[in-house]
Design a binder for these strands. Structure first.
Lengths: 193, 193
DNA sequence: GTACATTTGGAACGACTATTCCAAACAAAA
DNA sequence: TTTTGTTTGGAATAGTCGTTCCAAATGTAC
């Protein structure tokens, strides 16, 4: 029987993700990754393939982690409108807690690699659609329950909400100021009437 | 007297900017830059300093160019509200014309370097403030002329508009779809009543 | 304890990185 | 035409890049 793997895979992914998040894909070297994870080159290659494969694993790790957190944040309420409001409050909180100003790994990856890496491009698209769908679902339910009007379609409002979220990550990275972000959310969500 | 410089500086900056724009700062090598500009290593270093200095020059070149284009787009009207609407129509056009999906160099730079490069960080902040101020000025004038209401402050609406623009660049990079972008603009600008 | 299958550390690889250096090319002034 | 000061191309530098390789270490089954 083979020797067992000594490291905790989730731990390694967490460390690697943190590094890619902070320095970007091109800004992170395999040497950085060995130092951060504590694994040797061979272990890293043996367990996760090359740099690109490891990065893909990290992206998926990040996404499932983010989704889990968001769902937990909005889990307390049944009202779809409240879910939306809580989600944005939560996002602003997350942004303001991001002291290193690393932003959102998904958005960072979009701007860095979307146009030069097809595999990344499709992952980005898939995630965008998923996020859009999530918002649209909430809006649809809120409209059905009469919490918000039907002046605009759930599709359009959902896209606007995702767009506002993406904007918040950029705005927060450029200038992490609570009042600014709160203002943005206040105005952007004022369409939900 | 010295030998004269043979190349056109603006042309070199344009080529270099295009490369940084497409591949990012860390993704672009000095070798790439010599090939794209046609200059030799020594000429590049002699005329623009090191890679970082050249990049800063490119960023400023890009910004002044973008500002010029935007101002030209909105130059046709005197109404501040129309200026805002035209600006967003123009932005959507620009995004849809961006076939390579390179996005906005300023936003790409924000996500790539803002958190690891102080000099970039201050430039990003400066530009953010300038853009914010531009939108706020238009909103303020529109409010004074009664084109839009005073439910929200010009500051808040201006921030929201800039945030929407940043979001559009991300949304457009992830999924460059005219209907989606139009929907976003329609909903986001519906707060201007 | 021995055989086996896998992981591990570390050396080694060639390619590429940003940058420097120098001699040759060159245009204008003397 | 000679001098002068700068630009130019290309070689050279030292370092880092992602990746591969191999011998040693190690845990399990017999």
């Amino acid at each position: 029987m083979p020797k067992e793997v000594l490291f905790n895979e989730a731990m390694v992914l967490q460390k690697a993700t943190g590094l890619f998040w902070h320095k970007g894909y091109n800004g992170t070297s395999m040497d950085d990754l060995t130092k951060a994870t504590g694994l040797s080159r061979s272990s890293l290659y043996n367990s996760f393939g090359d740099k690109h494969s490891l990065f893909m694993r990290c992206l998926n790790y990040y996404l499932s982690d983010q989704e889990k957190s968001l769902m937990q944040a909005v889990g307390g309420t049944a009202s779809p409108l409240k879910k939306i409001k809580i989600a944005f409050k939560y996002m602003v909180d997350v942004i303001l807690r991001d002291e290193k100003r690393d932003g959102c790994l998904m958005i960072n990856t979009t701007t860095e690699l979307c146009n030069v890496d097809e595999e990344i491009g499709t992952l980005v698209l898939k995630n965008t659609d998923a996020m859009e769908h999530l918002f649209q679902q909430w809006v649809k339910e809120a409209q059905q329950q009469g919490e918000i009007g039907k002046t605009f379609s759930a599709q359009a409002i959902g896209k606007h909400l995702l767009n506002t979220y993406s904007g918040l990550r950029i705005s927060g990275q450029a200038k992490p100021d609570k009042k600014s972000l709160d203002d943005i959310v206040k105005v952007a969500l004022s369409v939900l009437v």
